[in-house]
Design a protein around this nucleic acid. Sequence first.
DNA 1: CATCGGTAGTTGCATTGTCAACCAATGGGC
DNA 2: GCCCATTGGTTGACAATGCAACTACCGATG
Lengths: 179, 179
Amino acid sequence: MRSQTAQQATTVTVARRPSVDESQLGAWRAFIQTHARLLHRLDEELQAAHGLSVAEYDALLQLAVAPERRLRMSVLADRVLLSRSGITRLVDRLVADGMVERSVCPTDARGSMATITQAGVSRLRAASRTHLDGVRRYFLDAVTADEQVVIERSLGRVNDGLTGSAIGADSSCSGALEV
Amino acid sequence: MRSQTAQQATTVTVARRPSVDESQLGAWRAFIQTHARLLHRLDEELQAAHGLSVAEYDALLQLAVAPERRLRMSVLADRVLLSRSGITRLVDRLVADGMVERSVCPTDARGSMATITQAGVSRLRAASRTHLDGVRRYFLDAVTADEQVVIERSLGRVNDGLTGSAIGADSSCSGALEV
DNA sequence: CATCGGTAGTTGCATTGTCAACCAATGGGC
DNA sequence: GCCCATTGGTTGACAATGCAACTACCGATG
């Protein structure tokens, strides 16, 4: 009864329009799993070395590279892929830590802006070494230039397929670092 | 003063061992961003259609394809990339919903096992259509076979670099579906 | 220039996940 | 056979996030 049941488990095929063939899923699995493990690792290292989560790092980065080092809350939310409430709270934390300041938007009194402070910039600058170093060691060093091109193009296409159209080019997701 | 400050923002380079060149980050950004958006979308669709999160789906899947349709808690935790406490709670929810049953491990009284129920299998089977369909539409359809090969190989290499060694091959991360 | 539909951001609540402390059971050394 | 360091799992306290409801404000329209 034991292995019979087990047998059954792998036998009773899903049948109804397989839609996806098992053999096609290799890339998908690699994508999911690698992302999970890698991000976890990077977060760990960044947290240990600088007490920042990757989300916080990313927010600081987006502010740092923005004109005047400040951004409307909603824009920031879009860039770091967080909900409006999520960004409110994340910025709260950064403000509490002295890395960001809030101010009212001059052209629209409803809106507020987050501005990265000098302390924030320093912290970011320090953290960026750790983070980019991790990206390089784990990701860039393991992927050839040719492969990187393929990844960028193909995943970019996936991304575009999700967002109706071209936001893809913009956001720098924990990326660029000239602060 | 405006654009001057802005100018500064993009000028004061990180300098200290750039480590990573800006132009190299395209693949990295595509990777991060596409993952975030895509997973969000898939989770949304799965939740709407079947009231399951991707994590729950994955756990059910892992159980369904396991011998005897059951797994030790710790093994399950590894497969779905969750902490021990995380898996305890996830299984709690599935048990509450009648999709999983707990039993004591016969060979080690400390351990417990999670077994997927028939109801769980049905639910999973239904959900798998939605999920795999999403994977196909958003991911597989947008990535050519050649590109998939490259992705699997290169990201697999990244993954291996993270886990000391070769677990990579195993776990099926929201993937295979023969239930 | 008063009104009103739509937008920006914050807050309450629920969900989900982690870490650390804990209990129970194992199994190797004596 | 009896310890005790180790392991498997659960639980409590807490952090991070999303959604929905709310407030304040904008700006077009009459």
